[in-house]
Design a protein around this nucleic acid. Structure first.
Ligand SMILES: [Zn+2]
Ligand SMILES: [Zn+2]
Ligand SMILES: [Zn+2]
Ligand SMILES: [Zn+2]
Lengths: 157, 157
DNA sequence: CTATGTATGTAATATTATAACAGGTCAAGA
DNA sequence: TCTTGACCTGTTATAATATTACATACATAG
């Protein structure tokens, strides 16, 4: 079973990801400011997709600004930097589990518990690009999102 | 080059699709009422993704109701019946070019002109389902959307 | 220090979507 | 025929998501 779906001490992977993120940002000269860092932490702690307003609520509770742009700007930054992904289907955001690794992820979204896992699908992307090229279309960005039931919810059902 | 991206007399494919839709609905005992039919026509005429409010505006101009549910209900019906698709990335809807054919489409969305084409990707879906199964995840619905440049806009650029 | 670019805070507004309820149509069955 | 029930349409109101515009603060380079 994939680690995302296993019961695990999540504080570990959150800590690791955070450290990796800080290293990456330093390397690139990008600024992981307090708000941005806190938003990343919030996403990592949640381990599932959160809406911008969910994030905003938590920020506000901690003394950061409580207007939508505060959340959207931080989230947009994280997405640009590849530290988070946007899940179109949910109008929500999730921390990237492979920051800096140059990956073309597919997202597996549980309909029940909203857990989001990233599946590796490089070959799929290649196949799509080939099909598109035949049609004369130049692919730039791909989003591949699947909904269904995660192992835990499947058992429960 | 794929037909969607070619210059073509679009009234033909719109007419064909509409006829096919009526046949399908009759077969299933579903009702393609005037509003629903008109919405499908609007999508077919546009040949690109339209937002619910774009559709609504046209409906209202023709004497139908001018409140959001009028558009959303018709669009939801068309999507349920497989006569249209929702494009998550654009919060928009587009007529299906293969109604009744049981297909798992990928959408190629032009960043410039918003034209949307359906690419056939049955093998891709199979590959994704296999990858997900290995992680214990049961896929139910897949949405695969790519943005980029269509042939025409590519030439222009 | 001062200018410059960048980040944050806030108000206002735009865009997308749904809930809840009132009538209207139509066909099946008493 | 009349009633019932399913379903479609219309409308009001509101929720949820997202952006624009502008003011302020803060860093760093010159
Ligand atoms: Zn990722
Ligand atoms: Zn689940
Ligand atoms: Zn289709
Ligand atoms: Zn184009």
């Amino acid at each position: 079973m994939h680690p995302t779906f296993q019961h695990h001490d999540h504080s570990h992977c959150a800590g690791d990801s955070l450290a990796r993120a800080e290293a990456l940002m330093a390397e690139r000269g990008a600024r992981l400011t307090p708000v941005r860092k806190r938003v990343l932490e919030i996403l990592l702690e949640a381990h599932k997709a959160l809406g911008a307003y969910d994030v905003l609520q938590r920020l506000a509770a901690e003394g950061y600004g409580n207007q939508p742009p505060v959340a959207y700007r931080a989230l947009d930054f994280l997405v640009e930097q590849g530290l988070a992904h946007r899940i179109q289907r949910l109008n929500a955001f999730t921390a990237c589990m492979h920051a800096g690794e140059a990956h073309a992820p597919a997202f597996l979204i549980c309909d029940r518990c909203a857990t989001v896992a990233e599946a590796p699908v490089a070959p799929i992307r290649a196949a799509l690009e080939a099909a598109a090229a035949e049609m004369g279309f130049a692919v730039e960005r791909v989003s591949l999102e699947a909904t269904g039931l995660c192992p835990a919810c499947r058992e429960a059902a």
